[in-house]
Design a binder for these strands. Sequence first.
DNA 1: TATGAATGAGCCTTCATTCAT
DNA 2: TATGAATGAAGGCTCATTCAT
Lengths: 221, 221, 221, 221
Amino acid sequence: MTQANDPIKEQLQAARTNQILDAAIRVFAERGYHRATIRAVAQAAGVADGTIYNYFANKEALLIGILERLNQSAQRRSDFAAGAQGDARAFFTSYMRQRLQLLQADPALMQALLPEVLANAELRAIYREQIVAPTFEIATTFLQELMERGTLRALDPALMARLLAALTLGTVMLHVIGDDVLEARLAELPTAIVDLLWHGLAQGNNDDEPTAPAGSAGPDV
Amino acid sequence: MTQANDPIKEQLQAARTNQILDAAIRVFAERGYHRATIRAVAQAAGVADGTIYNYFANKEALLIGILERLNQSAQRRSDFAAGAQGDARAFFTSYMRQRLQLLQADPALMQALLPEVLANAELRAIYREQIVAPTFEIATTFLQELMERGTLRALDPALMARLLAALTLGTVMLHVIGDDVLEARLAELPTAIVDLLWHGLAQGNNDDEPTAPAGSAGPDV
Amino acid sequence: MTQANDPIKEQLQAARTNQILDAAIRVFAERGYHRATIRAVAQAAGVADGTIYNYFANKEALLIGILERLNQSAQRRSDFAAGAQGDARAFFTSYMRQRLQLLQADPALMQALLPEVLANAELRAIYREQIVAPTFEIATTFLQELMERGTLRALDPALMARLLAALTLGTVMLHVIGDDVLEARLAELPTAIVDLLWHGLAQGNNDDEPTAPAGSAGPDV
Amino acid sequence: MTQANDPIKEQLQAARTNQILDAAIRVFAERGYHRATIRAVAQAAGVADGTIYNYFANKEALLIGILERLNQSAQRRSDFAAGAQGDARAFFTSYMRQRLQLLQADPALMQALLPEVLANAELRAIYREQIVAPTFEIATTFLQELMERGTLRALDPALMARLLAALTLGTVMLHVIGDDVLEARLAELPTAIVDLLWHGLAQGNNDDEPTAPAGSAGPDV
DNA sequence: TATGAATGAGCCTTCATTCAT
DNA sequence: TATGAATGAAGGCTCATTCAT
């Protein structure tokens, strides 16, 4: 269509694309993908209905565009690698924090995306293969290393990667469903989650918690 | 005119209602609520389109009907109370097992329900208030007791209830998204989850797990 | 089907038919023929939906049934003949009174009937041929007689019959549309209409009205 | 975005609106409002089904649109005022002629409108308040003036206004029902009606009609 | 490129009618 | 005869998408 590389044109196009995508996220989050109309997205973006089709093939492409945007955020895979070096627990905490910050940065994004990703087999596959699976692979490797190094207990790393992801996803979901407690303590969540993950619920595991009675024999970790 | 409660008529009606609800679960799970047509549900149920409207006010009422069915399953709240007596860990395991069995008993149910519950503000409110909130209340009390009794570490019970729920919900979600590993190990999940919850990931917490090599080196953090 | 002449059975059937017709009139008048459902008529009649079809072939047959009932009321054609003898003006008044009493006796009947009779070509034809045309024929003859006898001015009797009918129908229509003044003076209407018909609007015609200046010529009939 | 009032766009929209309204009148008159489908109206208008909804909110809005068109025709209220000056009888005649010309100009309009206006409580209220009531008010004042001036007999002006309207409406209705005589003499109607209104039926009232030979001794027929 | 009117396929829902009990 | 659950045709309406301007 257009010249492949007119930098100004490309920038304009990217800006329009984002403008529309932002609007779509807002509207999809508000009303749900199916109840949202292209007209509503266009109005929210301040363009005409038809204009959207100059940037996206169809309504579903908007969803895929949103998914791609999430994907880019998720491209912090390297984080795992980075974390493998230093303090494992600190790394987990910062990882959780980063993940949950998505919720605060763009609370609508997951709200817009999740329901239809769950409902639509095609999107589900994209999400699974482009976001979930790569994350699992890296996380599994990472956990395995930590286990081999003796930092973590020797558990099934692949399964643990799933449970970690489940905890994150589930938290996001509860947030979407709407829970006052969760919303009020969003800031403490990363610490609390990692503390739970690290020491578990059972009495006697913790060695660095104020709740643990002082003077207990030796360090248990 | 006729007696309001003809037992035979009532049974027939209940049977029809369930027949239609089963079909709706199948079809909604397969295609997603919005892409599913009433006609498809009717065909799956083996009735005419119009018959559905003799039992449900409209399409959304089907969804609420499914939600109510889930609600009945969830009425096992008493489980928490029961569990408070015996071995806490065994109780957690059986609780998890029961929850996750929903997935095996009717794998389509959550698939049919979750996306639209997340997308639809009204359903979200119903789900939150009728299923999530009561569960949280009971779970919080239960955890608090265990903490006071010294069985569990003294953490924030309300927050822990959320994290437990997040773990369960997140597992369900990953299952819906579709993960081979998770699916393959569905049977081990309850044990694995409770082990993680109990002892955490960190080395040295576990005192009863064969998977943790005894005498492992030093503290890792 | 059934024996042609079991008098008890026939009476029962007639009673049921009327019971259903009464209900139909009420419901049609309230909601309009098309918005009225067979179910609503059945409930108003205190029978089951299906029962109606034992007495009427279909929904439209209810309307025809109502039309026939009106027709029976209209069978007072003989009235015209009767009136031809005595005081013409008194006869007109009593005729108008009788016609407009339909409105008071069963105010719903015309409301139920008129709209659909106007809308439906088939019913229109029935109404025209079974009610309107015969009335016109008799009325025309009657007027002609009075004109020949010198009681009335020599006008076109066929046209006058139409205008008389128009005045009656139009009054009914205004009543259906709902006019406070008309409703308040329903009782005076026959007299007022006949006075208008007799003497017209113009000053100087009237000889027996208190509003008319005394001293006007002789008696007019 | 665009100027709210682009004159060309407005003209196009008005043209489309009229095009659809014309079609609706035709189809409603032909089949009746309820039996008429949006699809049929669309085809008669030469547009797609959906297009209609770009100009009218729903099917009922078409009816209201037709009502408004009638309303505009009826805005000739000033006629009454104009008539008050000159020859009262000539005015009545021209008023009647104008009213009945609606029937000749767009014979389908009343046919399309009347049945549903009578049947639908909401439309009835609109018709009553926007068309009937204002007409009554003006007509009553007008008649009162003529009575005070001595042109007309001193009757109840409010009631006379109703009877005049009834005569007009009733004539329209008979026309809709279909009467050969009425149709054949549509042209004479205004004169005939006003003659009737002026002089009444009774012998001896008339002083200026060619049908009543002046000075004729006895009865003329 | 942007616009937004036009399109028409598709779906939920209603409801007259049937028929087994 | 009475019942009322089941039927399925039909129609109003929505909305993603197209395309002439």
